[in-house]
Amino acid sequence: MMAKATKVSAAPHPWSSDALLTKAQRYAERMVEHAKDDWRFALWSSLALELLLRAALARISPALLAEKNDWNNIYFALGHEPRVQKFVPKSIGATEVATRLEVILTAFTPEMKNFCGRHLTTRNEELHTGAAAFQDLGAGWMGPYYAACEVLLESLGKDLQYLFGADEAKVARALIRASMYESA
């Protein structure tokens, strides 16, 4: 009997696709606990989206997440411990992650990349300013949101149900269809 050798590991690499995706699922669960017109639904959606984007890029290699100005970030991404005192790994911004994915993933369209950029910009406004940026956002963003998520999840071998649960996945697919009809 032959079995593929995999060494034990107490903890996942924090930039690993598995770790990022599992945490995205946790955030997505918080998201769907809220009504769709609740600002917290949108906030959690943006937090889940960033992790999902990063998980999709990390699936190719966590090194693609490393901030390039310090080579120690790449060294860290490759699973090593940099010998720098009080080293704090730095990764690229989420918008850059989306830009790279647009090139790498054929199904991740420029429209999806642009939507992700806008949604994450609104998230930053919500988190870093006094504006209630996710208040009264309307419903128009949800179809493009789920469409982007579906493509990212497919690149990870997962589906909408994995991230959002069976009930929300049904709603998500209907919203995707509706948004495609509107944009046609």
Binding site: T6, K7, V8, S9, A10, P12, D18
Partner: peptide, 9 residues
């Protein structure tokens, strides 16, 4: 070691 990310095989 179920609480490890990758338990021994």
């Amino acid at each position: 070691l179920a609480h490890w990310f990758l338990p021994p095989r």
